[in-house]
Design a protein around this nucleic acid. Structure first.
Lengths: 330, 330
DNA sequence: GTAATGTATGGAAAGGATTTCAGAGCAAGG
DNA sequence: CCTTGCTCTGAAATCCTTTCCATACATTAC
């Protein structure tokens, strides 16, 4: 006998394993004496219930998976941190899958889900051939976080990308901008957040003929990407007088480059970021604040409540508030 | 019957579950015809082996846990990203626990390990009362990553903190520094990396009497922390002429603040970071490069090889190389 | 021709919990 | 006294695989 199991506790206390199980799971109908005996036996034999056996029988694993592009990206890292915090507080564990990393196969998620390795899924990014995952994900509680997927039927947490984008653009225009470069990652999915933003750019331009919108695509939204992008923006035939970046890091890179070139911010160039990462506060960059960590928490709470069949939020789609933070770059 | 199980495949093919299991696990002694029949039945019934049942019987979960302070911190995020990548390539999953987040209880890790919820553990940070975890972790493959714990017997990957710190200090001295502020998080553990660095500071000061070392403690190693720290460093009675920061983010904050104050870098103040995060490259900050992502990969590979009883690295403690990156701040 | 090996298979026993169901004991209500 | 209902308990079924062991047959070795 290498490790004590529930039957060892049963024989040691003279009770049956059913009673042990009831007590350890906090169910009623266990006498005071039985409880004490069990406590003592558990401590004495160092008994720990076997997680696999438990979840085999109960059908619950106490685990969820969060799918993200790259754990190193600050936006996803914040989502993950939030989800882990929320999960820990109710005894759940979070498992990570990076779908943009080398070594990722499209069926890793499917595998995990169909083998019942997790109780739920949090999607923070588009899954490329959505059809490939659809059937697997329809059999398990799954929520989206920030990204609106093709399948709009999935519940999820999100911010109003359309409204917040309009508000950001209006702010830049109020501050005198008439040629705004909008920087963001290439749209991956017809309903992704970047496409919602694109729609907002379009509508805004239509309603404000005096203001020009330039779309700029970017690969990695890192500080460096913004840093190397500045020259291209100001050395155009019609130089831009404002940049609305989908990422604070890119905005930071632009600001740093602008300072080095002696370009006045916000006099000559207005810069507006998105997210309100710590670097935006440090560099006094105006930005649209998203409570990213909280979005991760909410996403977990949502999937958790669905797992337990008690959606305490009432709504399937949770809106989290955004807020325009006006600082020194606009 | 809601979901097909292995016995359904058995009856459907006319074989026994033992044969199905053998084939699905790639073991020998399955005829060609049997293989085809199984393939067909699996596809037809949409059979997926149940992960819990499998790991209950086999004792393997295909999962490891990585313990880190905070997934949002870029250093830990990079470790995690590396570990996830390496894990994905061999079909393993990584589970995250943040031991500095709200909602973390000291027994969450113990619980996970003693209930056999994972096959292995990667520790990237000190566990505060180490004695509390020691017995649980002695029964499972566990490796450290970057941090040297009290229990030196654990295998792990690390960089030469002592050597690299000496090299950094020597570099600063060569560039004319005579009063160096060394910034780092407060030491948590007698064998942690910050304590190894402290020893290096001490030895360096002893061997170079003309150079003064000032230890500066910091709570969060974020850009903002460096930003607000600068004034205290230069407005001292004996102002420092160089800063060696344990984190690139802090170094970046210092550099940004210095530029705003009009302090010449590196003329008046030399700045040296640690890690070589993207921001260091962008801002041209000299730094000691650590291949952090690769450290995460190596840590996983190490624990994976121990799980399979075949430590292909030979050594228990893997050294990964560091490299001094001289840029424009020194 | 017999012994020894190797391949292909199935029956049945773990593996360790949860959960259902039935039953025993006891108090209260009629 | 009988019924009802509540608390406490245990036997046994169940969850789904992997793995041990036995068996049947075909081949090769001596």
């Amino acid at each position: 006998m290498t490790v004590a199991n529930i039957n060892d506790i049963a024989t040691h206390t003279g009770l049956s394993n059913a009673t042990i199980s009831r007590y350890l799971n906090g169910k009623p109908y266990v006498s005071k004496e039985a409880q004490l005996a069990i406590d003592m036996a558990v401590r004495e034999l160092g008994y720990r219930p076997n997680a696999s056996a438990r979840s085999l029988r109960s059908g619950r694993t106490g685990r969820v998976v969060m799918v993200l592009r790259d754990a190193y990206h600050p936006f996803y890292a914040a989502l993950l941190a939030g989800a882990c915090r929320a999960a820990a507080s109710v005894g759940y564990d979070v498992l990570v899958q990076q779908n943009h990393a080398e070594g990722w196969h499209s069926d890793r998620l499917t595998q995990l889900v169909t083998t019942r390795g997790v109780d739920g899924v949090i999607l923070t990014t588009d899954l490329d051939p959505w059809s490939e995952y659809q059937s697997a994900l329809s059999g398990i509680p799954a929520v989206t976080c920030d990204q609106a997927l093709s399948d709009q039927s999935l519940p999820g947490v999100f911010i109003e990308h359309y409204q917040s984008t309009i508000e950001g653009l209006s702010h830049l225009r109020e501050r005198g901008a008439r040629c705004i470069a909008c920087v963001q990652a290439p749209p991956a999915d017809p309903c992704s957040s970047s496409d919602i933003r694109s729609a907002a750019y379009h509508d805004f331009a239509a309603q404000n003929p005096d203001t020009q919108i330039e779309l700029v695509s970017i690969e990695d939204d890192l500080v460096h990407s913004g840093y190397v992008m500045l020259d291209a923006l100001v050395h155009r035939s019609t130089p831009v007088d404002a940049v609305f970046s989908g990422s604070d890091d890119v905005a930071a890179g632009l600001l740093i480059a602008a300072r080095e070139r002696g370009i006045a911010v916000p006099g000559q160039l207005r810069i507006l970021g998105f997210d309100d990462q710590p670097i935006a506060r440090t560099l006094e960059i105006s930005t649209v604040r998203q409570p990213v960590r909280r979005m991760g928490e909410r996403a977990f709470e949502l999937v958790h409540s669905i797992i337990h069949g008690e959606n305490r939020f009432g709504a399937d789609r949770l809106r989290v508030p955004y807020r325009l933070m006006v600082r020194s770059t606009t």
